[in-house]
Nucleic acid binder design. Structure first.
Lengths: 168, 168
DNA sequence: CATAAAGGGTACTATAATGGTACTGTATTC
DNA sequence: GAATACAGTACCATTATAGTACCCTTTATG
């Protein structure tokens, strides 16, 4: 009869696991909107109204995106936000990472020397998880904001260009 | 000033989004354990003790895994659970799907004809999400339970074979 | 230089989803 | 038919997400 230790050190994963929430959804929406006019300065108000997310939440997201180096900000009366890079230089990993924390890295075996983490069985699973997470990471890295960009902005329920949709 | 509709039909995603929780972790642990003796019948008690997850939670997971056709079950005094397929025939998509619901499919454009979902802007984003999810799906599909299998079962803190760990 | 507009940061609350449990029912074996 | 093990469901508690409010700092403009 095999017994692991009573506790589960490997389930106390603070972050690193794959997880996508509403806020990330909104964040992508925001970035997508801003990507339509990639060099322009947008105020938080503007973005909030355009995307339809309440202002407090929008500002929160914008701040987070600045922290993640996806947006640059300018203070003061004529301030606002703008994309830090070109849309095709922003991948979904960047976005998810900024909004949900690092994707796909567990504590074990990340920066430590690989031989150091052999003491527990849990580590074997962790290592395998890392592998999966890596795959997910790569998958997200392949999609850029430019590709997510909406074809054109219309009020809802207007048909978008067929060509643009089929490209996917 | 561009305005979407006040509500967000696309954020009421019931499932389909990527999400991995503790229970899935446990589930993989359980399957991994059972994969050591792939044709054997395990009782819930046995699994619970071996893996260190409380019995109620273990049984819940086992039931779910049966539903997901990853395990077969046998009732009665000599009953128990066993793998429904060989470990190399069970991929992580199967596991995640069984425990967290379908991965990577939104309502929009799944089984419907592709031309049908062009009426709303939200659909463009959905379609792109689908793309990301598809990538994640593929990533998970590439890893099988056989590859997750622990090299050998020892009490915790005993070093596992170095070769097995490095293979990852 | 004062004021208004806009971003920066933090702390807090409510809600929803996950995680975990208990209980009752059904099928086997001896 | 009694004991054992799975099946199913409904329930509660904990946690973390989502969302909000507040106060501070920076900058443009008159």
């Amino acid at each position: 009869m095999v017994l692991y230790s009573g506790r589960f050190p490997w389930s106390n994963r603070g972050n690193g696991m794959i997880r996508i929430g509403k806020l990330t959804d909104y964040g992508i929406l925001i970035l997508t909107h801003m990507a339509q006019d990639e060099a322009r300065l947008f105020t938080a108000q503007e973005v909030s109204q355009a995307v339809g997310v309440p202002l407090p939440t929008t500002t929160k997201l914008l701040k987070t995106l600045v922290h993640g180096n996806l947006l640059d900000s300018q203070r003061g009366t004529k301030g606002g936000y703008l994309l830090a890079r070109r849309p095709d230089q922003i991948s979904m990993v960047d976005v998810v990472t900024a909004l949900e924390g690092p994707v796909g890295l567990t504590d074990c075996g990340t920066a430590q020397q690989p031989g150091d983490c052999q003491r527990s069985i849990s580590c074997a699973i962790k290592t395998n998880w890392q592998r999966i997470n890596q795959a997910v990471h790569d998958a997200l890295a392949q999609v850029t904001l430019a590709e997510m960009r909406l074809p054109a902005v219309h009020p809802i329920h207007l048909p978008a260009s067929r060509a643009d949709l089929q490209r996917v």
